[in-house]
């Protein structure tokens, strides 16, 4: 589905919905009656104070804000110190796809749970270092498919966009007479029919 990618996720953004489904550990600060079902390890009806659970980010964001927070959230594993150290050492060598599919999106939410402010720095640093490599890959398209597998969703989109832009630029430089082509969706629809 060709959706425009915006820097700020909007209400309907699919990527944002998928990214906020990722889980983060958190601890309950109050008793929550009737919602024991959230905790799969017990059969009790109520959720007791002090229970630790992994909950999706969208729920944690709702619960940890306001005057009376229900839970106190912790950082997901991949943004903790040991992982940050790996990224600081050499961000380009890391398989970000394995860290998390939505590394940057999730990070921008997770950094709210981080009191030291280190996550913010790490995210910026990681992106800055990896971006140079990304542009290099997109421009010199001796395309090695394994390279793409190490990118997270944001990087992958940047890669494909710049790759397409480069291809367009090349074709414009080589041939001036513009060929009319079938619409993108029509072409893809045909391909799917054949298989």
């Amino acid at each position: 589905m060709p959706l425009p990618s915006a820097y700020c996720p909007n209400y309907y953004a699919i990527d944002d919905i998928l990214a906020t489904q990722e889980r983060t550990p958190c601890k309950f600060l109050v008793n929550v009656p009737k919602l024991g079902v959230l905790n799969p390890s017990t059969t009790e009806k109520d959720l007791a104070i002090g229970t630790s659970l992994e909950l999706p980010i969208w729920l944690v964001l709702e619960m940890s804000t306001g005057r009376q927070p229900i839970v106190s959230p912790e950082l997901p594993k991949i943004y903790r110190d040991s992982y940050c150290e790996i990224l600081q050492a050499d961000a380009c060598a890391v398989d970000l796809h394995k860290f998390n599919l939505y590394f940057y999106e999730l990070g921008s939410y997770a950094k709210r749970f981080d009191r030291k402010g280190a996550v913010h720095e790490t995210l910026l640093h990681t992106f800055r270092i990896r971006f140079r490599q990304l542009m290099d890959l997109a421009d010199n398209s001796i395309s090695d498919p394994s390279v793409q597998q190490r990118l997270d969703v944001l990087e992958r989109r940047l890669f494909s966009d710049s790759y397409k832009a480069r291809a367009k630029m090349n074709s414009w430089l080589v041939e001036t007479g513009a060929t009319m082509e079938a619409a993108n969706m029509v072409v893809n629809h045909k391909k799917r029919k054949k298989t």
Binding site: L35, L38, L59, E62, M63, Q68, I70
Partner: peptide, 15 residues
């Protein structure tokens, strides 16, 4: 005491 329960459910409905 019911407030947190209601808040969680409301968040889920919104989601």
């Amino acid at each position: 005491s019911f407030l947190p329960t209601v808040r969680i459910r409301h968040a889920a409905a919104k989601r």
